[in-house]
Design a protein around this nucleic acid. Structure first.
Length: 492
RNA sequence: CGGGGUGUGGCGCAGUUGGCUAGCGCAUCUGGUUUGGGACCAGAGGGUCCUGUGUUCGAGUCACAGUACCCCGACCA
């Protein structure tokens, strides 16, 4: 069958790659560093999109769309921002192809050189702020709360399926406010939206916190993040929300007349999550049998596999299954009846497990006679037999249980891989073993850099809600006084 | 861009000190038997051995160059 997924212990990278490819989520594209998201994988992304979008709208955010191409000159407006992105951009230099005069194929027409090069957006702050300039004149125009779902391109040196591809899908929210306080509050509100989504929908426990100055987004005054732990103990930044201050407003000269009639620069935020969340899902919940999807994101929540010997038997079982399907669908669940008569049940079981379907219902001749079904849950790989009568309410409850169990399992994993650490020797020893370490830090970039150089570990965040970290102590590296612990980890 | 590795039917691989008709497993197709955890038997189809140059009577195998991909760093959502 060659469908088995590599064991996690042997090579985590390989395991992850196999899982993403074999579970039918994606495949490597012919274009370097890019990926093809297959229908099954995209269905999961669509669910994420839909649920997130609903949450955004509840906070007053509206969707809009801005151009893919950004004139090169826009990037030179915000000095810090360009330093963060200029090195890894795809650049459009020509607008026409021609037949190769020397032979076959096509070449770039040298006469079609662009006056000014266009950059394929790596993020849209610049073009959006250039646009906002036209939208904002008075305090009455504020706030502007826009989000766009789009693709962006960053020419990364090394790519990794879902986690770091040259092109990826994401949403980027960009807001404009009259006051610093309002903008900061918005940045905070949005990171909390991400945390809620991660915890309640993705069943992914995350730590919310501030980034250290070193790890901040290029051009931001403050970056808020949700940090998740993968099953190898490494950290993954799953979403960010930035308080941009007046940096972009000043670069693009976006001023408004306030209530006192004075000109003032606008305050900004931006925030985003990407298809990297798909990577988080795979790495946080997957096991050696394949993907484990939280019911709220599973494109198929319940799969039904008939077990039969004859066509009559098959049809009889399918009839019963469609009845159950109808009831479950009426309750809002997505159900698939696997009526393929060319494959054996064992094959189907393995295949749906690989794809992470939360609940499987099997029904054979014995069940048909007894009025029962076999219900298997993906998260625990356990099976139980139930009466068909009233099965739908049981399944309904079971899906909730699975959602909760997957989350609890991930929380338990994280709790067992996170600890306080107050000794530098201990830190060096433990940080490489797949743990988050809560340590005192003196707040300086120098210390952070020194620790990174020595161990590759970075400050993932200065947590604000997950653990009690406000306490006096001394920096683990420098020995200087510190008022709180921060999260150190090796990251993706 | 540095260090390492790999390119052989759709996928995964073997191929000895260069040797005669390039193999194996999976997948595919046909027929039959099967069907409560990835079926079995029989038969069939499918290859510019990454590209180029060289060495040689003879290259999948050796040399050089190029190229693609993977892994480890630096960079990053």
């Amino acid at each position: 069958m060659a469908k088995e997924v590599t064991k996690r212990e042997e090579n985590y990278s390989q395991w992850y790659n196999d899982l993403a490819l074999k579970a039918d989520l994606a495949e490597q594209s012919a274009v370097r560093g890019c990926m093809v998201i297959k229908p099954y994988g995209y269905a999961i992304w669509e669910k994420m999109q839909g649920l997130l979008d609903g949450m955004f709208k509840q906070t007053g955010v509206q969707n809009a769309y801005f151009p893919l191409f950004i004139p090169k000159s826009f990037f030179s407006r915000e000095a810090e921002h360009v330093a963060g992105f200029a090195k890894e951009c795809a650049v459009v230099t020509h607008h026409r192809l021609m037949n190769d005069p020397d032979g076959k194929g096509v070449v770039v027409d040298p006469s079609a050189k662009l006056e000014e090069e266009l950059i394929v957006r790596p993020t849209s702050e610049t073009i959006i702020w250039n646009t906002y300039k036209n939208w904002i004149t008075s305090w009455r125009d504020l706030p502007i709360l826009c989000n766009q779902w789009c693709n962006v391109v960053r020419w990364e040196m090394r790519t990794r399926l879902f986690l770091r591809t040259a092109e990826f899908l994401w949403q980027e929210g960009h807001t404009a406010h009259a006051t610093s306080q309002e903008a900061e509050a918005k940045a905070f509100e949005m990171v909390q939206v991400y945390a809620k989504f991660a915890r309640e929908v993705m069943a992914l426990p995350v730590i919310v916190g501030h980034k250290s100055p070193n790890e901040r987004f290029a051009g931001a005054l403050d970056t808020l993040t949700i940090e998740a732990m993968m099953q190898d103990g490494k950290a993954l930044q799953a979403g960010t929300s930035h308080f941009l201050g007046q940096n972009f407003a000043k670069s693009f000269d976006v001023q408004f007349t306030n209530k006192e009639g004075k000109q003032e620069y606008v305050w900004a935020t931006s925030w985003g999550v990407s298809t990297r969340l798909m990577g988080a899902l795979i790495m946080a919940h997957g096991d050696d049998n394949g993907l484990v999807l939280p019911p709220k994101l599973a494109p198929i929540q319940v799969v039904m596999v008939p077990i039969f010997k004859t066509e009559e038997e098959h049809n009889a079982i399918l009839d019963r299954m469609y009845e159950i399907k109808k009831k479950l669908e009426a309750m809002g669940h997505s159900v698939k009846v696997d009526d393929r008569d060319t494959l054996r049940p064992g094959f189907k079981f393995a295949e749906w497990e690989l794809k992470g379907v939360p609940v499987r219902i099997a029904m054979g001749a014995r069940d048909l006679a007894a009025g029962t079904v076999e219900v298997a849950r993906r998260d625990t790989l356990t099976k139980e037999t139930y009466a068909v009568e009233g099965i739908e309410s049981h399944i309904h409850q079971l899906l909730d249980d699975i959602q909760e169990n997957i989350y609890n399992k991930a929380v338990a994993f994280r709790e067992s891989h996170i600890e306080k650490c107050d000794s530098w020797d201990e830190f060096k020893e433990k940080i490489g073993t797949g743990k988050f370490l809560l340590c005192h830090w003196d707040g300086t970039a120098e210390t952070e850099q020194a620790i990174k150089d020595a161990t590759k570990a970075t400050i993932r965040c200065i947590p604000i809600d997950t653990c009690v970290c406000e306490e006096e102590g001394v920096d683990i590296f420098s020995g200087k006084p510190s008022h709180r612990r921060v999260v150190f980890a090796i990251s993706y």
